[in-house]
Structure formats: structure tokens, C-alpha cells
Write a protein that binds this DNA or RNA. Sequence first.
DNA 1: CTGATGACTATAG
DNA 2: CCTATAGCCATCA
Length: 134
Amino acid sequence: MRGTKFVHACSAVADSQREERARRICETIREIPCGSVASYGQIAEIAGIPRGARQVGYTLRNLPEGHDIPWHRVVQSAGTIAFPVGSPPFEEQCRRLLAEAVSVVGGRVNMRRFRWQPDLDELLWKPSSAWDDA
DNA sequence: CTGATGACTATAG
DNA sequence: CCTATAGCCATCA
């Protein structure tokens, strides 16, 4: 029957899959260009995890000490910063965003102006395919 | 297994 | 703009 080894193997697989999700989430966040922001849900979807907004938050909360992930470019879907207004992390995120010209007004970013649009990015960086027929 | 939690989100009033 | 509510889902006690 299923012994201890089997159970250990299963939990090992579960761990690797969890790591894989976290890896994709971080990878996606790293793609957010300087000067833009993305929502938790947007990151989750791009990372291939539908309805995984909370998982993005969870991953971000457990980042290792020396990480180089631009966590400050992730905000809630409405543009509001996820931390309590006035809290240390809230202030830190405001500073980092302002430092790259992303204006934060009343603890909120105007998503219409700063929301990251991967499709548009690709058009701007690889215009040939889009403009050839003109 | 069960219930509580949270760096979430969409919707309604 | 605000609050309340109901989904959401991996984690954890």
C-alpha cells in the first residue's frame, strides 16, 4: 500500500508546483516596465493563474531578503495601494513609485495612465509587424 | 478535516 | 467615494 515514501513524494511534487507558481509570478512582476504598474489579478492571469490575485499577494509577502523584484509596481485593481494608508510599507511603495514618475494621489495610482499593457509594449518594441502594411 | 486569514476583486447600494 | 457582501483560493493553526 501507499507508504511513507509515497506520501513524501506527493508533498515534494506539491512543493515544486508551488515553487513553480511563485517563480512565474515573480518572473511576470519583473516584466513590468519602470514607470508602469499592474494589478495583482493581472499578474496572476499573465502568470497563468486565473483568479490567483491572492496568491500573488501571498508570494509577495514571502519574498526572500535580498530579492530584486519590483514589488512596488503591483497595486490593487482599482489602483489603490494594498497597505494601510500611512503604514511604513505604504510610504515605501509611494516613494518607489514616485521615484519612477508614477504619481500616487490619495494612495492611488491612475490606472488609465500607468497600467501596464503587455500587448501595447510589444507593438512599441516590435513595430515592424504592426506597421508594415501602412 | 474545519475554520480563520489575507499585499484580492467585482458588484450593489 | 464609501461600506457591505460575496466570491476567490493557497496556507495555516
